[in-house]
């Protein structure tokens, strides 16, 4: 694992296969919370934080328990336990983050409001966990190698990169939608449809990065 590999992982997660625009993960907040730039930014920060923690914790559980041969039990633990384990980790982390913010940073807690608990059902978080472990793309599984410590580092790195990519897409989208409010859009296209079409155009722009890796 060297710095070039890490850069490849980051560049891939932020631009080439952006979680929102290329992998279609986390679309609910992407459409629901992008009416104002401040909210989009707050949501992006919270998601990035949970992605990092969830990525590391789920990888640890994967390496210690789920991975083939990690625990001597004659059953395919990965297949059976993966989904409930990951979702419980994510739900718990979101709850912890919520409690911490409420106690220590009440201003941010108030600003995020309902969107904080809803991070639990954000499929981008679950997506990070799956892409770190069982559905890992080549560059991630190669960088992680066999060592647990390397894997943990790569999982955290990938989580942060994915979060940055998510935040970038959120900010771009909210900038566009603030302008769209004043645009003259044909009646049936108003609201959601035109937002999706804008997302499509943004996704097309992000496709320009494909050749760079």
């Amino acid at each position: 694992m060297d710095i070039a590999t890490l850069m490849t992982i980051s560049f891939s997660a932020i631009f080439v296969s952006n979680f929102v625009l290329a992998r279609f993960l986390g679309l609910c907040p992407f459409i629901g919370v992008t009416k104002k730039i401040e909210n989009a930014l707050g949501m992006g920060a919270a998601v990035t934080f949970v992605m990092f923690l969830a990525g590391v914790v789920t990888y640890l559980l994967y390496g210690l328990i789920l991975k083939e041969g990690a625990v001597w039990i004659d059953a395919d633990l990965e297949l059976v336990l993966r989904t409930p384990m990951y979702i419980l980790v994510i739900a718990t982390l979101v709850q912890l983050v919520e409690m911490f913010l409420r106690a220590r940073v009440p201003a941010l807690y108030d600003a995020l409001g309902i969107y904080l608990p809803l991070i639990t059902t954000n499929c981008a978080i679950m997506g990070v966990a799956l892409l770190n472990t069982t559905d890992a793309p080549v560059e991630i599984s190669e960088a992680a190698g066999a060592s647990l410590a390397h894997g943990l580092f790569v999982a955290g790195w990938h989580g942060i990169s994915a979060g940055i990519g998510f935040t970038l897409a959120m900010i771009l989208m909210s900038g566009i939608r603030e302008r769209l409010d004043m645009a003259d859009v044909p009646a049936p296209l108003k609201g959601m449809p035109v937002a999706f079409i804008c997302a499509g155009l943004m996704s097309m722009a992000f496709f320009g990065f494909t050749g760079m890796l």
Binding site: F24, L189, M192, P193, V194, F196, I197, S203
Partner: peptide, 15 residues
């Protein structure tokens, strides 16, 4: 590819 999916869904909702 990805962009086509967004645009197809956008027009479907409009319809």
């Amino acid at each position: 590819l990805a962009p086509g999916a967004f645009i197809a869904l956008g027009f479907l909702i409009a319809l």
